[in-house]
Amino acid sequence: MTTENLTMAKAINEGLRRAMEKDPKVLLMGEDIGKLGGVFRVTDGLQKDFGELRVVDAPLAESGIVGAAVGLAMRGYRPVCEIQFDGFVYPAFDQIVSQVAKQHARSGGVYKMALVIRIPFEGGIGAIEHHSESPESYFAHTAGLRVYSPTNAYDAYWMIQEAIASDDPVIFCEPKSRYWEKAEVDRETPARPATEAQIRRAGSDVTVVTYGASVKTCLRAAQAAEGEGRQLEVIDLRSISPVDYPTLAASVEKTGRVVVVSEAPPVASVAGDIAATLSEMCFYSLRAPIVRVSGYHVPYPPSRIEEEYLPNVDRILDAVDRVMECES
């Protein structure tokens, strides 16, 4: 049987396993990823099967994990780092920006930074502080990095393998609130390349550009909007950096209206940059200003009030109303 119904966490686990079977240079490094299988169990069983030299329980030091991965990559390995939670990636930020992103260019193309940094990101799981953040804009801002984010098990299975096989460093953002959602995973038919955005629902009235956990929220909003006679086209970026603008622009030329949705705070964000870029690319097709639905410009709030922070169906529909009301 080549197709199986898997959670996204299990699909990533299987993708990691397949990458490790295919290439002996692939190794995993992170905190509690061995016997425990990671706090989200994404690496469950891998140390048992591949040994402690390939599934490395690292000291509790994120800069160390990424900095050592850089050295392993220089030696020809393909390390996959696990950062336990989004809010813990900042100690490694220096190594990511100063070394991971720049070593290929600095060495004139000699060093390949063929490493992946997996980060469970975004909120919505009722966690305490530093466990629900959206740091992707920092990495999207940094040349030399790619930033991918799968939103379903099938994509996750294939995209993690694509990220590992890439000679470019990939920040792999896993929407943790979707880890336990199941989907059919076809192990024979590869998903489309990560750099291609996917239209998750076709529609003619408004283009809804989104990624991460918000994809599901936007699909719910699209369903609700249908009841009001509005057809939303929901596009899942998959690659946050680079963004597949040809796919977005084709949709905008059809709809003339855009809402960009993500959990991250709005200032200097991926969503803001998409709004600016589409304004420039599609100015003569746009029939309304581009509207963003995002987190607020506050630290991620206590979990008891996170529902009011996160983009939800109501806020997305409100944004849809605003772009629809604008007649030009």
Binding site: L53, G67, M74, Y77, P79, Q99
Partner: peptide
């Protein structure tokens, strides 16, 4: 390496590669 200290971690990672080889 101009960012002070970064290279020591890269060195250790490289050394971990030597161990594996």
């Amino acid at each position: 390496t101009i960012v002070i200290g970064n290279q020591a971690l890269n060195a250790v990672g490289y050394a971990m590669g030597i161990q594996r080889d």
